[in-house]
Design a protein around this nucleic acid. Sequence first.
DNA 1: TTATCATTACCTATCAGTAGGTAGACTTAA
DNA 2: TTAAGTCTACCTACTGATAGGTAATGATAA
Lengths: 202, 202
Amino acid sequence: MKGETQDKILQTAIRLIRTKSYNSFSYKDIADEVNIKKASVHYHFDAKSTLGIAAVQEYQSKVSYLMDKLKAEEKDPLKRFDQYIGFFRHGLSNGEICLVGVMSMEINTLTKEIQDELKNFFENYTKWLVDILEDGRDKGMFQYNGSSADKALYITSAIEGALILSRAYNKNNGPSNNNTYNMEYFERVADQIKNDLLNNPC
Amino acid sequence: MKGETQDKILQTAIRLIRTKSYNSFSYKDIADEVNIKKASVHYHFDAKSTLGIAAVQEYQSKVSYLMDKLKAEEKDPLKRFDQYIGFFRHGLSNGEICLVGVMSMEINTLTKEIQDELKNFFENYTKWLVDILEDGRDKGMFQYNGSSADKALYITSAIEGALILSRAYNKNNGPSNNNTYNMEYFERVADQIKNDLLNNPC
DNA sequence: TTATCATTACCTATCAGTAGGTAGACTTAA
DNA sequence: TTAAGTCTACCTACTGATAGGTAATGATAA
């Protein structure tokens, strides 16, 4: 199959970035997981920075697809918001946090090209959330003061932070018998974000 | 002077972790910045993990000192909260984000000893904030629903996330002529956290 | 006082291992 | 036959780490 190995490499890279960070995985790691040799990884992605760019683009297109589908199929703002949160929840339950968050942390060590790719992603990222928020406010379901852009930035910050802290500091973390993680911290923050949206200043 | 070089190494390590991340700096980086040889860094800290532990402990004791001083000297809860935020603001203005946040992101790549050290730090970290929040609520200045522990987790998440995003996505980031960073995103999130504390559900 | 010894804080040189990366031969399927 | 994909085998640069040596300092005992 054309592109099968290439796709495996890409998906593995994305998973490794989300579990260990960009500067903490190597071509050897990829090769071992895909069951090919290091040189073959280089055949598909000549340099690590190339793979990095591809990983961001692939992750973005996956998220774009989900967000567009969500916008088309789910008209209830609260359920749409829940599904938005659900996207992060699902990753975290497998020990994977947001790729944008991880690579943003390492921003000072990345090439200009990757930085630009991330910036582009981040802009879309917040647009989706602004869209959900404004839809909810228009329909009278969400209340918040100030601009939607500010609120989106606030929520995004809280989610990114919650993902990091949840994976690091939950009791019994590390994957359990069924290979999922304790979600306690994440859920506690997610609940508060939602309550703020629903109950905010009278 | 006894310990002068050792302290320079430690301070440099902390700065490099906060600007680049733990897995993105090397003993060579430290050696070059302190103007000694790599082997001399090993003389003071036999292994990188030893240096990592020492960095977390040193950072913790610095923060502890500031927090205790703050508690003793500043009795107005709002001003105390502002100073708490100011601690993160100051770091970010030099391109440095929270060491706990950075290393938590890399948690899966760290030794058990460093993980324990971080967990210990995180527990104190949230205790300080809970203390500020409850003091403010007791004095009738802060309003929030739910437990103080939940609120502290929420605020901590938002701050950690804001630090990451602010450094990565502000316009014109990178250090400017006066060697400081654009703080826009961080301030926008910080303002909302504060407003929530002051105006929340009636 | 001075010769002896230990300690501190560095050095040069080197280690084995791993990083990302390349050249060229081999395999396989269209 | 040709092109795609994978391999072996290698490279250079760098990783954390160690061995062994050297001044300088300080303590100690004859």
